[in-house]
């Protein structure tokens, strides 16, 4: 693509990633969550690929590394699920502990990010997984499809 598109995309990717991380981290307080935030960040990867071409992205982003990130996100999710197995699989064992805040008061309240027990951590794991998975698929499609590279 042209220089204008590339410059704007390079500036814009920062805001896209920040907004995706916000949706992931605030998933247990506001609407959103791991899947949605990961999809937002993956759309940022699509923006970069469209703007600067897959051959340039290839030099610093490989879909093999993205697969590693995706698997580690899934492992984080499953390990957090197993951590509560003293009671039941997927037991929320961090609720009310001092590290992750108390229980929020019932009713309309501002919402504290540090509540929720293991739910934010699981959101983070799922967010990593979705982000890396969708980016890896898009990158592989762009790299391996064998189509003509978009120039100018």
């Amino acid at each position: 693509m042209s220089k204008i598109v590339r410059t704007v995309a390079n500036q814009l990717i920062l805001f896209v990633v920040i907004f995706g991380l916000y949706v992931i981290i605030q998933g247990h307080v506001t609407p959103g969550g791991g899947f949605q935030g990961g999809a937002i960040i993956a759309s940022g990867a699509v923006l970069l690929i469209v703007a600067s071409g897959s051959q340039e992205i290839k030099t610093w982003l490989r879909e093999r590394r993205l697969s590693v990130v995706e698997s580690s996100g899934a492992l984080l999710f499953i390990l957090l699920a197993f951590a509560g197995i003293g009671t039941v699989f997927f037991f929320n064992f961090l609720v009310g502990s001092r590290l992750f805040g108390g229980i929020p008061s019932v009713g309309p309240n501002p919402g504290d990010v540090w509540t929720g027990g293991v739910i934010p951590l699981m959101n983070l794991g799922v967010g990593l997984k979705v982000m890396a998975g969708l980016s890896a698929v898009v990158l592989a499609l762009a790299l391996f499809s064998g189509g003509e590279e978009l120039e100018e």
Binding site: G27, H28, V29, T30, P31, G33, F35, E70, S71, A74, F77, I78, A81, F89, F90, N92, V95, G96, F100, G101, G102, I103, P104, V106, N109, G111, T115, G116, G117, V118, I119, M122, N123, V126, K129, V130, G133
Partner: peptide, 29 residues
Amino acid sequence: EEAASNNVVAAVLFDYRGFDTLGEATVLF
């Protein structure tokens, strides 16, 4: 009280119906 998250949808997704989310993640994987 049980999940300590304001977003009840997130509480259902990751706490009450965690198996469902695990299946979704497996499908994506």
